[in-house]
Design a protein around this nucleic acid. Structure first.
Lengths: 225, 225
DNA sequence: ACCTGAACACCGTTCAAGT
DNA sequence: ACCTGAACACCGTTCAAGT
């Protein structure tokens, strides 16, 4: 009859947003959608399939940058879009690091990163590696932020340092002032991205220099910021 | 009577290594250690506490670099040590991204990174940010590797690209040769680290340049390799 | 304090039965 | 084919009882 898959994923996403991943049970999803738990199986194929569906939903929400932007702006758009998706759906986003995710949505994001890196002048042989490097950071950052890995340690530096004899943590002691200031996650993410994009450019420049040495082809520096 | 906590964590770690996180149930751990499930509670304080204990175990296994090494070698030692711990205990390592982890073990690792970054010349105000940047990448990389996020997509590029109309994935098409070659995870991790350490150095140099402009203090470039 | 055993309120999933 | 309802083999945890 009707394809209930979209409605099932809607319900599951709502439950995940409201009560975390632990609240997403086949029974709870079924109840919200007005079906028996077993009625979900033909549509999502079990719990794993349901979670894959949620991840696909989340990735399809990430806006792809238009081709009119320069490569650095395109990477920034993607990174901020991914981080925004994490803020909207923290529980589901946590699945991203730990799941293969062969979803079509993830393919399109990767494709956009590939195009940006090629436009930046990163040699083809290095593009997949650099894509994984940048993606790993962005996904890792958003996950850490959303799961509390960042905020937990920094709440009270004194008690943290107090866990061990003070002379075992000299750098912590020297940085107490900075650490006590806490984290401005928005600013930090932007600063990290700036450093990483500079890194991408230096990979590109390094390749061009090697190529110029043998074939002397100059190359225009792509503007940042 | 006897403190069973170490034995409990031993058993739980074994079970996690053998059968994944799903196999780590209070009942299974209790059985292996020769107790009733409820007997674990005074020692680890429930399931969450048990998982925290596993994470602490894992982090305490990461070797800390000696002070005789230069900053870049120290960061490399830490990064490879963390990745090696992930290879030994893949299931437990997956908890790292998603858990606060205020463990003493993680404190010592962070301390070592702080010291290395300060030695590299990264200004104190930027050290915590750069620590989080590098740690996020290293943890994210090891997690992705261990959970199959990297390998899954690349197994068969043709079918992957076949999911969508070919002209929607031009960069994928151009990179088919590189993508089909697969991933040498060891080499890729080393290359990523090299690029990130160069980035750290450029952050340090940027700061020194600003400082030199006002106070003209030269600074020795720390050797890499 | 530490441990046991029974019980409670959940899980995902199988299976036979209905339409 | 799609859906139901009962059942199975699990969970983490509470609680009263023992020592």
């Amino acid at each position: 009859m009707a394809d209930h898959r979209p409605a099932i994923l809607d319900a599951a996403l709502e439950i995940a947003d409201e009560g975390g991943l632990a609240a997403v049970s086949m029974r709870a999803v079924a109840e919200r959608v007005g079906l028996t738990p077993m009625a979900l199986y033909p549509h999502v194929g079990g719990k794993e399939g349901l979670l894959d569906g949620l991840l696909e939903r989340l990735l399809s929400e990430v806006p792809l940058p238009g081709p009119e932007l320069d490569w650095a702006s395109r990477l920034r758009t993607l990174a901020h879009g991914l981080r925004a998706a994490a803020a909207r759906h923290p529980a589901v986003f946590g699945l991203l690091v730990s799941r293969p995710s062969v979803a079509a949505g993830s393919l399109l994001v990767i494709e956009a990163v590939f195009q940006a890196l090629l436009a930046a002048g990163v040699p083809a042989a290095e593009v997949p590696r650099v894509e994984r490097l940048v993606s790993t950071f962005v996904i890792g950052y958003a996950t850490s932020e959303v799961s509390g890995r960042f905020s937990a340690g920094t709440v009270d530096v004194r008690t943290r340092v107090g866990q061990l004899p003070p002379d075992e943590l000299p750098a912590h002691r020297d940085l107490v002032a900075t650490l006590a200031a806490g984290i401005d996650a928005d600013a930090e993410f932007a600063a990290d991205l700036a450093d990483l994009l500079a890194m991408v450019e230096s990979v590109a420049v390094r390749a061009t220099a090697g190529q110029a040495r043998s074939a002397k082809q100059p190359r225009t520096r792509v503007g940042r910021r």
